[in-house]
Design a protein around this nucleic acid. Structure first.
Lengths: 329, 329
DNA sequence: AAATGTTGCGGAACCGGTTCCGCAACACAA
DNA sequence: TTGTGTTGCGGAACCGGTTCCGCAACATTT
């Protein structure tokens, strides 16, 4: 298993190594030499050493992917989509996890630059000045996925529109007393856009809304569900900012003896696959994570090749209207 | 942001670059020179070029991780654990996805070797002769995770023991008519060890068992649940080989109008977090994926440094006895 | 004082590619 | 026949590190 080098090929084919290199990179090589080299490469299973190549070219065929966490459904589906497409296109994916620490996102931007990745896909949560500075410093194309910023190419989920569409549907079904369970505004996409979409739909219909704030963790939403179960107001619908929150709220309601959708309706957002097989199945919005990942891969490759693409691109969404939300009229 | 090289450092410090290199790698350098070099490196933020280093050393600080799929709960948790520990230890993780194609596992073994990773953690499903050949060829430490083979260092889940323990518990609770829903034996851990553990427990108690075979996909288990709902035999318990299967079966039962655990009990295996918050909460076995990932990282690093470790190591498990299985006596 | 050992350092080769430059061979136009 | 252009190829430098070798300066032993 000793490494075959370009020198070996040159020697075996009886030519200079510069000629072999030219052959490999599509330079001008005569018919006769071309064939000799071809044969030798075939026989020896020669494959160029990537380090030597990168040393000179200061480039790799790697795309760095910065993710806040690896164990979320959204992240892993997205990564999967990215990987599939990159592999097809002859690139490799290098995933780095930041464990939800903003500081590490910045570190990793520099770090990936040091590793000479060709481009970076960043599944962001917040965009700060220091992020922007890092992106400027490293001189490498960066695609922001799932958040947006005017100075960075971004591919975003239509959180506002999707939330608005779902909210509007609920209004048409006659819900007028709504509880909204969301997350803090530090997460632009979920904490702001999604919330605003819902609230806009509710306000437009003149509905009565109460807002609760929780985290992305299932457990934290359980007590909220429990409290709602105890309360004696006349809310007919609980709208949750994520499927995880919906899961927690459902558990809390069950603990409090309420049944869905008979006593009260519940909706989620995000599109876990298994929301469909729960009983009751959960009304939610499906975001195409995997396809979006592939799309992101395409876009970063376009950026690499210098193509101009819009600063901001939206993905699609799909309402999944199921059993957990009741139709009042 | 131009790259500072060892030559620049040498020039600025007024020494030869070999001296700088020696300084960096802990060779013999005098006090005076040491300080000069130190200062210059400090000032310039010098960082060695990894490609140049790898070119010479034919090694990297990367550990390759081969996974059959990226979007499973088990895989993503495991990867997370691996990554955390590797980062702590100064290594980088390079994840490659095989999209569940055995052929690509073998390809990737060779491919990772080409990229000169220091070691490989392989989340395997089946081990064939060709895998073994590849592992022998590449001359790089490989740790098999989640499956076992006498010739490869492996870290495995105690599928048999865990299944046996859970099965025994069910027997103590008085279940004697059991339906087992598993997967084919091509997956050694799930299709064989897990099944055998259960069956052993059932047989020991003289229970009556019927076996169904399905896949890892939720959807494929739904019709099985539906058929069970229609059947008029007197099974009291459905034991599923994975949580996903349990989810599908539960849906099928719900479709058929059966309620759990009143009409029949259901158990899963694997330990999705949210099995706890479902209603009813699901009895299952929790496997410590994340911790196991960390453990795997430790082990591969031990292998790199030439330490001797046992060929086969077991992880732990924890029974999660919850609402979905009824206690008959 | 001479012989021997130790330490610090510079020079040069090497890892395996890419690329620039220039020369030789040949074709074609003047 | 001379001049001009094109094509194919080899030599050498270069990318940024590591490592081997040898020399000079100094310390230690006899």
């Amino acid at each position: 298993m000793k490494q075959v080098t370009i020198n070996d090929i040159a020697k075996l084919a009886g030519v200079a190594k510069s000629t072999v290199s030219r052959y490999l990179n599509g330079g001008s090589v005569g018919q006769a030499t071309r064939q000799k080299i071809e044969r030798v490469i075939e026989e020896t299973n020669y494959e160029p050493n990537q380090f030597a190549q990168s040393l000179k070219s200061k480039q790799t065929k790697m795309i760095g992917v910065i993710v806040p966490r690896l164990d979320s459904y959204a992240a892993s589906r997205t990564i999967m989509g990215i990987d599939e497409r990159l592999t097809e296109r002859g690139y490799q994916m290098l995933v780095v996890n930041t464990a939800q620490q903003t500081e590490r996102e910045i570190e990793q931007l520099y770090n990936l630059a040091k590793q000479k990745v060709a481009g970076i896909i960043w599944l962001g949560t917040t965009v700060t000045e220091r992020h922007l500075q890092a992106i400027k410093d490293i001189q490498i194309p960066v695609l922001l996925l799932g958040q947006e910023h005017e100075h960075v190419h971004s591919l975003v989920y239509p959180d506002f529109d999707a939330a608005f569409a779902l909210g509007k549907q609920f209004m048409e079904w006659g819900h007028r007393d709504v509880l909204y369970v969301g997350v803090g505004p530090y997460d632009i996409a979920v904490g702001q856009a999604r919330r605003d979409g819902f609230l806009h739909a509710f306000k437009e219909a003149g509905a009565n809304v109460t807002t609760h704030t929780t985290t992305f963790k299932i457990e934290d939403a359980i007590p909220i569900g429990e409290r709602i179960a105890e309360a004696t107001d006349d809310a007919t619908l609980i709208v949750c900012a994520t499927d995880n929150i919906a899961l927690g709220v459902l558990k809390g309601l069950a603990n409090g003896g309420k049944s869905v959708p008979v006593d009260i309706s519940v909706s989620g957002f995000g599109g876990y696959d298994f929301t469909e097989v729960l009983h009751p199945s959960i009304t939610t919005v499906h975001l195409p994570y995997r396809r979006t990942g592939s799309r992101a891969a395409d876009m970063i490759i376009q950026l690499l090749s210098g193509e101009t693409i819009p600063m901001k691109t939206f993905t699609s969404f799909e309402l999944k209207l199921r059993e957990s939300v009741d139709i009042l009229k």
